[in-house]
Design a protein around this nucleic acid. Sequence first.
DNA 1: CATATAGTTCAAGGCGTTTTGAACTGCATG
DNA 2: CATGCAGTTCAAAACGCCTTGAACTATATG
Lengths: 182, 182
Amino acid sequence: MKGYLWAPSAATSVKTAQSNWESMAIDAVGNVIEFWGFKRNQGRVWALLYLRDASLTAAEIEKELELSKGGVSMLIRDLERWGVVLRVRVPGDGSWRYRAETDLLQMARRVIEEREFSFIARIRADLAEARKLAEADARVLPEQVERLRKMEAVAEATEKALGVFLKTSRLDVGGMFERFRA
Amino acid sequence: MKGYLWAPSAATSVKTAQSNWESMAIDAVGNVIEFWGFKRNQGRVWALLYLRDASLTAAEIEKELELSKGGVSMLIRDLERWGVVLRVRVPGDGSWRYRAETDLLQMARRVIEEREFSFIARIRADLAEARKLAEADARVLPEQVERLRKMEAVAEATEKALGVFLKTSRLDVGGMFERFRA
DNA sequence: CATATAGTTCAAGGCGTTTTGAACTGCATG
DNA sequence: CATGCAGTTCAAAACGCCTTGAACTATATG
């Protein structure tokens, strides 16, 4: 597994009780991220790590967010794969610690780019294909072909919205440099 | 129930077998619409009616799309409520017929406007609230407040994408006038 | 190497949503 | 007003997705 030795271990005393504003923010992030087709708890784990600006152990995450051992393991695996959470080793400690790496928007962008975008592209291709078949069929009225064309507008609008999301998220590069400061 | 008397009853002979291109297009529409959080079959029913440009009975829809009686009833109710399907009565026929009314984009727009938009707005409000609470708390570091602010970017990007979708869909007014031609 | 602790895996369970189908309602017609 | 068909309703089943937890693996430490 990747992960680098000892990132500075948290702000020493991790106060383990969630303040009110913290859980509010954590849940909010979970909700937006769910909107984009990710798991709510993926967003929550990331948000916890990001807000604390500290490296936490799996056990801590488990306790703070009331998740199961196995669940935390899988959630972290996903976040690591997307590059938004980093696994670090702390010297006098047998266990891994995790910290938020980049902005969550980057993860959303990356995944939407490769997964949703091509999903919509596929749909558009299907509609285009259907139209071609219809055009070749003499029994199909020109009006119907026109309607097929209009249907593509739904897919196009969707694609456009995704595009804006991606573009917007790309503007937020702030997160990229933070890791060098801490 | 609403619905108006005898819209011209279909193109006489409704060829009851789906051509290949037709089911392809129907499924494609079902898929995009599902992306926006509607039911796949809501999209499919609308697409069938729209493509045929004819008024079909519930029984016909049931057969064409392989849905259950009860299912068709409920799907149509939804589509009617959203104003994208119209219920019409044909003189020599004891049953209702249904036809596609406006562009599906309008339905998506309407529902997203009232449901998704406020959902995201609520999330943004939560984040703003969390930040306010954090700012009032002396123990919270300014850095953390800054991170809370950054989190709002995720919600903002989402809101922006929805906005674009809404704007785009509003441009397509073509559907509005068609009903007067048929 | 033995032991303890952290982390992973995955079948089973839980949960929310969608679909089915059978009973029911309502309406038109003779 | 009896009959039959169209349409509606809703409890139960089916389905898909997410989470749990117990067994298992890996790793550190004495």
